[in-house]
Write a protein that binds this DNA or RNA. Structure first.
Length: 376
RNA sequence: GGGGGUGCGCCGGAGUUGGAGAGCCGGGCCAGACUGUAAAUCUGGUGUCUAUGACUGAAUAGGUUCGAGUCCUAUCACCCCCA
């Protein structure tokens, strides 16, 4: 797997690059739709390709391990075969679930014991078996098993947790290199920077992660409720330390404005549930701002969801119609808005790539951010 | 024509043995939230007003009572039975 930087912005830390995988090329900066259970909720694979133009999607180790189970995924020949997505896939390790399902888990040096949310059964995740599981799922990019600290987080806990994540990373790395891909294509392991909102911890963690000979690196533990300024500050510190020649993946981010700000800070890859979850809840992002399509004000607005969108779905259906679908509980409503939001996010990063290449990124970003944040 | 029953919120339901209703549950409606997805979810609001407080309100009009959504009379509407 190879990452090449094609263009670097003069005014910001933004770059345009390409990550070549055995399932195709990923043009960065990129947004990766989240498909936790092997499905981007409400969206067909062909829609992801043709309408949304997704280049890579996510899966989740914790969820896929519980359902359908790794035995099924192995029989299927890996997740690509199972869900019919033949472009790159990235799996999260379950580190986030360790944090979000905190009331059911126990963290030890060895790993994490937890009760499955599905049936209460007890399981143990270790750095080693999480590598094995991700070998079996077969994503192109797999993530180190980390602990994602909550916000707020005491300094001492953040430090201990970060150190544990570092020790786990070493074990992940060793296991990963002692094992081979199962399905004949290359996999890459991305380490994860932690350290909560503490500058010295983020710096330390980034320095540890930078020492690994990985294809790419990730920044975790952000977008967990901290102020945007903290998120930007931590990202800024970390991207100064992580190797410039490797893609940086900011996990779990974010809003359209977050994406542009973090691209400016040198981030190349993003994933977030926001476009799909908010789509199901009636919030759509447009080139003119956010819209709650359920609001009564749209009931007789027959203009398209977003006339400026590059995808036909957003231009075809009217606000009034989609509001009606939501009012009526019709499944087509969330399907349309999910396509729309994902396509909007992919459009946004594509425009960012173009702006970086033609040298107008910073001014464009500064114009766009307030527009993207406003509510229509 | 005679007899019986039921009437309060936008709708449905519950409840009120004469004792503090702007007031229970559900729906609808109106908003808000959502950031490596236990989320097609969750939260709030939904009589009026000059609004941290007031006012009006149990089909309508009277009456009994210290006190009426509850009891009485008349009227109206709807439902059931008889002719």
């Amino acid at each position: 797997m190879e990452f090449t930087i094609q263009h670097t912005d003069n005014e910001t830390k933004a770059r345009v690059g390409q990550l070549k995988t055995d399932h195709g090329v990923i043009e960065t900066p990129i947004f990766m739709p989240v498909g936790t259970l092997g499905s981007v909720k409400g969206v067909h694979q062909h829609e992801l390709k043709e309408d949304i133009k997704a280049q890579i999607i996510l899966g989740n180790t914790y969820h896929l391990y519980l359902r359908p189970g790794i035995d099924i995924l192995e029989k299927a020949g890996g997740l690509h075969q199972f869900n019919g997505w033949d472009r790159p896939i990235l799996t999260d390790s379950g580190g986030f679930q360790v944090f979000s399902l905190a009331h059911r888990r126990k963290i030890t040096e060895e790993g994490v014991t937890f009760a499955a949310h599905t049936d209460g059964s007890k399981h143990l995740f270790t750095p080693e078996n999480v590598m094995d599981i991700q070998r079996t799922i077969g994503a192109d990019i797999i993530m180190a098993f980390d602990e994602c600290t909550p916000y707020p987080c005491e300094y001492n806990y953040a430090k201990k947790s970060m150190q544990l994540t570092h020790r786990w990373l070493k074990r992940c790395w060793d296991r990963f290199h002692q094992t081979n891909p199962k399905y004949g294509y290359e996999q890459a392991l991305f380490p994860i920077v932690q350290g909560s909102v503490y500058k010295d911890l983020r710096k330390q963690s980034a320095e540890v992660i930078a020492q690994y000979d990985s294809v790419g690196n990730a920044i975790g533990g952000l977008s967990v409720g901290e102020p945007h300024e903290d998120m930007y500050e931590m990202t800024d510190i970390v991207t100064d330390i992580l190797p410039k020649s490797k893609p940086r993946y900011l996990m779990g981010v974010g809003t359209p404005a977050n994406l542009l700000e973090c691209i400016a800070l040198g981030i190349d890859m993003f994933d977030c549930v926001l476009p799909t979850r908010n789509a199901r809840h009636g919030l759509i992002y447009t080139s003119k701002g956010k819209i709650n399509i359920k609001n009564a004000k749209w009931k007789d607005d027959f203009s398209p969801l977003d006339a400026d969108a590059s995808n036909p779905t957003s231009r075809f259906y009217s606000k009034a119609y989609v509001r009606h679908l939501f009012q009526s509980g019709e499944l087509l409503g969330p399907q349309i808005t999910s396509i729309h939001n994902l396509a909007f996010f992919l459009d946004l990063v594509r425009q960012a790539r173009e702006r970086i290449q033609d040298g107008t990124f910073l001014s464009w970003k500064n114009t766009m951010v307030p527009i993207l944040d406003q509510k229509l």
